Simulated scan of single mutants.
Amino acid sequence: MTSYASALLEQNHDVATRLRDLINQLAVEHGSFILSSGQQANFYVDMRPLTLHHEGSPLVGQLVLGMLDAAGIEFEAIGGLTMGADPVATAVLHTAAADDRAVDGYVVRKQPKGHGKGRQVEGPGIEGRKVVVVEDTSTTGGSAMQAVRAVREVGGDIQAVAVIVDRDTGAKEHIEAESGVPYLYAYSKTDLGLA
């Protein structure tokens, strides 16, 4: 597997290098962990301390937007399953806004809201719009696929699934086979020295 960031890291790109270092400092823990997929792992990547960090968030926005642009993905809205996707999408829409690009965000609830309008997808409407589903990290792709299904139910036109850290455990293959859209990731576990 080749990640987007690995190409930038080979060129010693400041954003990719600094973000990789921050991921290792703030988001990676070593030990024995059970993942949301039920799999056992000797490291855990909790991206929230990074994606909500004052320095990490802007770097996430720059890297994810750069990755999507480099892949030629055109989109009008970005979001995914709460809560891992929320700070990633927010970082991207702020980065886009700084470049005078109109990118909206959206949030996918784990379950439709039990009151009010009963929505599962919140934010500016995405029906008929080109959207990207994001996730902070992925093992099997289950969270991203839950978001894909919800977005398609409300008429969003998914262009890609984008992830910051891919654990190299089959998420890419699963998501591309089931969703029919490209799966992009910024860092593999190898890029982070976790292989």
Score class of each variant (00 low, 15 high):
137 T>V: 13
166 D>L: 00
125 G>H: 11
85 A>Y: 06
116 G>I: 01
22 L>I: 10
65 L>S: 14
50 L>F: 10
134 V>G: 01
140 T>F: 03
42 N>E: 15
6 S>V: 10
164 I>M: 12
87 P>A: 07
140 T>Y: 03
30 H>I: 07
144 A>W: 01
38 G>D: 12
179 S>F: 04
57 S>C: 15
102 A>H: 13
111 Q>H: 13
194 L>P: 09
42 N>L: 09
185 Y>H: 11
100 D>K: 12
175 I>A: 01
69 D>H: 14
153 E>T: 06
16 A>H: 07
9 L>A: 04
39 Q>N: 11
115 H>K: 10
188 S>W: 08
122 E>R: 13
190 T>V: 15
35 L>E: 06
39 Q>L: 14
155 G>Q: 02
110 K>N: 05
187 Y>E: 05
128 G>N: 12
27 A>N: 11
123 G>K: 01
28 V>W: 10
35 L>M: 09
121 V>P: 00
173 E>W: 05
10 E>W: 03
31 G>K: 07
73 I>C: 09
188 S>K: 08
31 G>Q: 10
105 G>L: 03
52 L>W: 11
78 I>R: 02
26 L>D: 11
112 P>K: 01
99 D>N: 15
162 A>I: 04
34 I>F: 05
15 V>E: 09
114 G>H: 09
95 T>N: 13
94 H>V: 14
79 G>R: 07
8 L>Q: 06
